[in-house]
């Protein structure tokens, strides 16, 4: 009887073990968490579309996508190690890295920022000197504040003559429409599109045209995490860049995928207009080898501007704050 019980127990254990092994996938997916720059929208559409197309799953990544609350907060989360990779403006990440945070930009997504001052067409701000005596809305903690300051400095504008109001980008739209302010520092899609839906025409004075062409939102990660698992990050970057490439080819399908996953995102028409008019053109600048890599000259300019803004970029300067080691050998072609 005892032998019978022993053999029964042994058979049960072996069966359970085999069943457990059988239920495991051949190569278990590696968990990874990405924190977006903001709530899911056109900036992060490439990541969401890549996930919808199964690119991360195919690369063996079990991806958790977490909405963010601004580039500064995302950069801090990545620096603190709460998340594996972030989507944040390069200027925010480099600003934090210059204070000693072990952050690196591993793949620029928007190769240049399209921020600038949006003003009404009948009271336009067309050059930096026009800002003197005007009331301009800046979003508290926004990544474009260093650019605004740099643009003023490079163009000899006296900041004390500009009346600055701290208002969130979206909150400033009705103020501009009601002419309570003269301009908003923002991406054109954030202001021009909502104004256009109300029949109000606006103009954009881009910072990039007035001496401030900065690398825009990028994938960022902690240096130690990159060193611990370089292959994982290479696979992630590869899948993400493919996602953005597919967004450029099929914007309508990408917006559908975004809205299917996040039904509370902006209406499709608004997302499409912003994506095709303002966002996709930023995936590559002139001379870029492909999506995900900017020309060396853009990094040099970015370093100069940010050094002027922050005082110092810390050890190694701008060169130590970004790397191309995690880019795929074959970059997706520019749209």
């Amino acid at each position: 009887m005892r032998k019978l019980l022993q053999s029964y127990a042994m058979t049960t254990m072996v069966t359970a073990l085999l069943a457990a092994l059988g239920s495991m996938p051949a190569g278990a997916a590696e968990k990874m968490k990405v924190t977006l720059n903001w709530l899911p929208d056109n900036g992060s559409i490439g990541i969401i579309y890549a996930d919808a197309l199964g690119y991360y799953k195919d690369a063996g990544i079990d991806l958790d996508i977490e909405p963010g609350k601004g580039s500064g907060a995302t950069s801090q989360l990545v620096a603190g190690g709460s998340t594996d990779v972030g989507l944040a403006s390069a200027s925010s990440a480099i600003g934090i890295a210059s204070k000693g945070a072990p952050l690196k930009v591993i793949a620029p997504i928007y190769q240049v920022v399209d921020w600038g001052i949006t003003s009404l067409k009948d009271t336009p701000i067309t050059k930096p000197k026009d800002l003197e005596g005007k009331t301009i809305a800046l979003a508290p903690g926004a990544a474009d504040i260093p650019l605004f300051d740099t643009m003023l400095k490079l163009n000899g504008v006296d900041k004390s003559k500009v009346n600055i109001q701290m208002v969130s980008g979206a909150g400033g739209v009705p103020l501009l429409a009601e002419k309570q302010i003269d301009g908003i520092s923002a991406a054109p899609g954030d202001v021009m599109i909502p104004l256009a839906t109300k029949g109000i025409e606006a103009k954009q004075m881009f910072y990039k045209d007035w001496g401030a062409p900065l690398v825009g939102i990028s994938l960022i990660a902690r240096a130690d995490k990159l060193e611990q698992n370089p292959e994982l990050y290479k696979k992630f970057v590869d899948a993400t860049l493919k996602g953005y490439s597919e967004v450029a080819k099929h914007p309508s399908a990408a917006v559908d995928a975004l809205r299917e996953r996040y039904p509370d995102a902006a209406p499709k028409e608004e997302l499409m207009e912003e994506l095709t008019k303002f966002d996709i053109p930023l995936f590559c600048t002139a001379g870029a080898p492909g999506i995900g890599a900017v020309p060396a000259a853009t990094w040099t300019t970015t370093g100069e501007i940010l050094t002027a803004t922050f005082g110092s970029l810390g050890d190694g300067g701008i060169a130590a704050k970004h790397t191309e080691s995690y880019l795929p050998a074959q970059l997706p072609a520019c749209p």
């Binding site: 609350k69 739209v173 909502p194």
Partner: peptide, 20 residues
């Protein structure tokens, strides 16, 4: 400011979508 759920998040989404 610190969550991706709830009525506060819905309001934030409204701000982002410029949906008063």
């Amino acid at each position: 400011i610190a969550s991706n759920d709830g009525l506060g998040y819905v309001a934030l989404r409204g701000v982002r979508n410029r949906d008063t």
